[in-house]
Simulated scan of single mutants.
Amino acid sequence: MFWISKYGFTHLSYKAVYSFQSLRLFVLFRIVDPFMHFLFFATLASALVGSDYLNFVVIGNIAYYTCHTMIINFMNMFRMERRFGTLELNIASPTPTLYIIIRKAIVPLLDGLFVFGVGILIGRWLFGISFPLSEIGNLLVLFVITLFSVLCFSLLFACVSLLFSNVNLFLNLALAVFQVFCGVNFSVTLLPNSLEFFSRLLPLTHSIEALRTIYGIEAFSVYSLLMKEFIVGICYLVLSLILVSVMEKAARKKGALLKSI
């Protein structure tokens, strides 16, 4: 079976991304690490501005940590492909490259789903952030659109990462940009107009505002925010498809993607 076979595509993709982890260690890491991340920022916010601001920060960091996980997974997947020489095999395969990438995206997608669910549970049981059962439909729609938007950006970022021999610097810069400009710990409306405009071009910004609205922390139009997030995701998807197509044609023409790396 596709999902449970030891030699199935999903299982092999999982082993490629998490070759150093067992399933037990993966589950443990995905619970302890987000727990410490949320606890740190919640404690910092409470110490600086009081506990009334705690829910605002925790909800923002739940969305951010999901995005953080997916970006790292996608980039690592492409980096491992290049390191072990299988990137060229994907290009040479008769199967469309985009189809291969989409199938491999199942693992980061499931990982993001797990992290988001864990974040919601930690917010409920550790910080007492009540889960809005009446808004569960909107929450599911938000989750799907957010993962789509972040997945499209992750694909674009992973493709760009192939242009550099060491992507850790760019990864840290990208995560820092998301942390500051997506309204994770404060509202983007506090930014100057030019920077707020930039933040609206990033995935996650509208999703964080929508998630806080669902939890009753902010008052925006959820559907308007989700539509904007979906449009942002479509734009990144188009850019990703163009970049994948250009890189594939260059690889087929030169016989290698980037000989200098």
Rank of each mutant, 00 (worst) to 15 (best):
L44N: 06
F2P: 15
G112W: 03
P108Y: 07
L147Q: 10
V32D: 03
F178T: 02
L89N: 08
L211A: 11
C159H: 08
S207H: 06
A210I: 08
T10K: 04
F74L: 05
T69Q: 11
L25S: 13
L54I: 09
A45S: 14
T213W: 10
S134H: 05
S199N: 04
D111S: 15
E229R: 04
I102G: 03
V238H: 07
P192T: 05
P203Y: 05
T146R: 04
L121I: 13
F41L: 06
I242R: 10
L133M: 10
S207R: 04
A42T: 08
P96S: 12
Q21D: 11
P94G: 14
A105S: 15
W3S: 09
N76D: 13
G216R: 09
M247G: 03
S221D: 15
L139F: 06
F9E: 14
R79A: 15
F114N: 04
T86A: 09
A42I: 05
C67P: 00
L171W: 05
L25G: 13
F148S: 09
S187N: 14
R83K: 10
F220T: 01
L155R: 01
R200Y: 09
L156M: 10
F2R: 11
S19W: 10
F186I: 03
V57A: 10
E196I: 10
E229S: 13
V27Q: 08
M247F: 14
G50L: 09
L48R: 14
R82N: 07
I145A: 04
I242L: 15
L258N: 10
H37Y: 12
I31S: 04
V222R: 07
N76A: 10
N168S: 10
I59E: 06
I136L: 11
P94Y: 14
F220M: 09
L202P: 00
S240K: 05
K249T: 08
G233R: 07
L87A: 15
Y7W: 06
G183W: 03
L48D: 02
L109R: 00
Y53R: 11
C67M: 15
K254P: 00
K228N: 14
M36W: 12
T43V: 07
N172V: 02
L44K: 08
T95Y: 06
L113F: 13
N172L: 08
G128Q: 08
A210V: 04
A63D: 02
S199W: 06
P34Y: 06
F56G: 01
V238N: 04
M70G: 01
H68C: 01
I242P: 00
I208Q: 04
V167L: 05
L239N: 02
V222C: 07
Q179W: 12
N76M: 13
R83A: 13
H206C: 09
I31T: 12
F230N: 07
V150Q: 05
C159A: 13
E196P: 02
A63P: 01
T10S: 13
N61S: 11
A210Y: 01
K15Y: 06
I106E: 13
V17D: 08
F78C: 02
C159D: 08
A16P: 00
F74S: 07
V188N: 04
Y99E: 14
V32W: 10
V57W: 02
I62S: 01
S224N: 15
I62H: 03
I208H: 02
G85N: 08
V49T: 07
N185Q: 11
F35N: 01
G117E: 14
V238E: 07
K6Q: 12
S134Q: 11
G137S: 11
R103S: 04
Q21I: 00
Y7E: 12
M75A: 07
K6A: 13
H37E: 03
I4L: 12
